[in-house]
Amino acid sequence: MPKKRILFLGETYRADAITWMNGLKEFGDFEIVTWELHKSSVGFSRISRLMELLMAFFKIRRIAKSFKPDMVIAERTTSYGFLAALTGIRPVAIAQQGITDLWPHNSPLYIFKKMLQDYAFKKADLIHAWGKVMSDHMKKSKVDMTKVLELPKGIDLTSFTFSDSQNLDYINAIVTRALEPEYKHDVILKAFAILKKKNIPFTLNIIGDGSMLKSLQKTAHELNIEKEVIFKGRMANDQVAKLLTQANFYISMPITEGVSASLFEAMACGCFPLVTNLPGNRSWITHQENGILIPKDNYKVLAEELQYAFERSVWRKAVTEKNRKFVEEKANYKINMKKIAEAYHELINKKSH
């Protein structure tokens, strides 16, 4: 029997997209062809992006004509989701990537994006909510919830293994988010500057790249913590996993959050998590129970809570062991992606009958 074919609309360089596609190939035996937008949606490039969006329909139809997909899937419920719904290919599965894909709220294109999203929600046969925070937004948007599958893609637990042998005598912290303004690395640096003044020993590994690299390096120098802060740059998944098993704290301070695979990876490897107090994080972290929730932009509280957790090593060790079991139950890639692949096959089989 020939493999079922999927047309994937989305940014194929993103780790989430790679995880999604690899899982479908591994557990659903799907053949996948991809298409993505190339123009930036920032600043003056928005006009070029809109023009590309207008021409996209015809390009996708040409791909569909030659590839003959059994199904189309799309990351995001706006641009790619709208295009997937417009193609005429059935069934359609779309995924909301954050609390809402209508971001930022003050965008001049907000109303336009909302129209695209409403159309995509209406036409989709299956809508992915990677977590509760997404499905809550969908309810408010009056989505037909019978079409919603609330399930994270999960992470590969054979790659991100648990370690409880970290050094407890100093803070070995790790950050694995892109060096972009919305991830607020400056808040993290300011918190560690406070810890240094208190003579609390630490190393801070910052993994990733982005537009804020030079600015953050300058900030670390100005705060006199450049010797303790190591900017690692972009790293392969296996290298990230190795550093996570060596670290004892994971920190993430974004201003918005959906479902963070980075958080799951850190919890799986035995890192104690301190993350922004946002709905997306509250779905997985209960304050001072299995991690610590920090108010947005509050570096002073972050420093206080880091010290609090550091001084309670026995409690912290119990938390990390509990977190590993939690991830095994809720975010196991091999279990969750198999369920998603099975859902796709069911949709395709319904269409053929």
Rank of each mutant, 00 (worst) to 15 (best):
S283T: 13
H221M: 11
I292G: 01
I63T: 04
A236W: 04
K59W: 02
I6T: 03
A56I: 06
S79M: 06
F162P: 07
T276S: 15
M138I: 03
P91H: 01
I292D: 04
T100G: 10
F67T: 00
A241I: 06
D118E: 08
L54S: 14
I111G: 13
H38I: 02
N172Y: 13
F162A: 06
R234F: 13
E311Y: 10
I47M: 06
V319Y: 01
I171H: 13
T87E: 00
H105M: 11
I99V: 09
D156K: 14
F162G: 01
Y299A: 11
P181V: 10
K317T: 06
T78A: 11
K218G: 00
E305Q: 15
S135Y: 01
I6S: 02
L86A: 09
R14P: 01
R90Q: 13
W35N: 08
S352Y: 12
L83T: 04
T320D: 08
V301Q: 07
I47V: 07
T176H: 03
K68P: 00
L168P: 11
I206C: 07
I348L: 05
E311M: 11
D16S: 14
E265V: 11
V33L: 11
W35G: 03
T245V: 03
V33C: 10
W130G: 05
A343T: 07
T286D: 09
R5I: 05
Q96R: 09
L274K: 10
I171S: 12
D297V: 02
A95M: 12
P69M: 06
K350R: 12
V33F: 11
L109S: 06
K325I: 06
K350E: 11
F27Y: 15
L195V: 01
N248V: 01
S252M: 05
E36Q: 15
F67Y: 15
M235V: 03
L244V: 04
M145W: 07
D136S: 10
F310P: 02
P181F: 08
D209F: 04
W103Q: 11
W20M: 10
E289Q: 15
P91E: 04
T245Q: 14
E52W: 08
V133C: 10
G270S: 07
F231R: 08
K227A: 05
F192N: 13
N298G: 05
S40P: 04
L7K: 01
I348N: 08
F160Y: 15
L126R: 14
Y250K: 04
F202C: 02
V133G: 01
E226P: 00
R90E: 07
N199H: 09
D101Y: 06
L151D: 00
R49F: 08
E26H: 11
D209R: 12
N22S: 14
S48L: 10
Y344H: 15
E311F: 08
L53T: 07
L151I: 14
K242E: 07
L50Q: 12
D164Q: 02
V133W: 05
T203I: 12
F8D: 05
K184V: 04
K59T: 07
V259I: 12
L109A: 13
A17K: 04
F326A: 06
Q217K: 15
D209K: 13
E180G: 13
N205D: 15
K139A: 03
I94L: 01
C271Q: 00
D238V: 11
E182L: 13
L347N: 10
M71Y: 05
I111W: 14
E311N: 12
G210K: 00
V275L: 03
D238K: 15
E305P: 03
I155Y: 11
K184R: 15
S260Q: 06
E228V: 05
F231T: 01
